[in-house]
Amino acid sequence: MDELRRYAAIVGKDLRVEFRTREILYTTTLFALLLVVIFAFAFLSDPTKSRDYGPGIIWVTVLFATTVGQNRLFDRERENDCLWSLLLSPAAPSTVFLAKATAQLAFALLMQVPTILLILVFFDLRVTDPFAFVAALALGNVALALVGTLFAAMLMNARMKEVLLPLVTYPLFVPVVIAGVKVTAVAVGAPIAEDPEVWLKFLLGFDMIFGVVTVMLFGRMVRA
């Protein structure tokens, strides 16, 4: 129960600071919108075929914009040198980790709502299976938040963290992107023979296994 309160306190702190400064939300949302515009110029030749590349555009935008946000996730902790204070607090390392990952997930989802609506409008995509569409993005974002938060924390003080973070996380994100694009493609009615349920279960399995492993690794890695 105490642990839950500490968790809520850390998440609340991050959300409060963010809503006051709007640093991460403002910059990542703007970045995502610009990406969408650039993708439109790069790919939009035949609007009737947008179902073929639309799902890919959604996931690349989500991935890039989320990475930009993850690079900023521990900025305040670094500037004020207070990650160690957080870890010295009564909260367990796993609580700190899950709280930061939750905050990261919240920022990512808030950024993605307007971005994805805009992609649907710009590329004239119609969601025929809303449940699969939302579920894939939700499960995919949990995976991105878990792995991204772990490495963002560990690379906080690294000299080239902006480049190192995607170098490290993208190979791990590949299965998430494959599954996400498949489900999203089915959800917007692309003519492919895929069972979205298999891929959603796959994403759920990814989240559970990487959830356990990242929580365990975070504790080990900060102690090492």
Binding site: F151, M154, L155, T214, R220, M221
Partner: peptide
């Protein structure tokens, strides 16, 4: 530590 973590993941 972070390299070891990556190899385990």
């Amino acid at each position: 530590g972070v390299a070891a973590g990556l190899s385990i993941l």
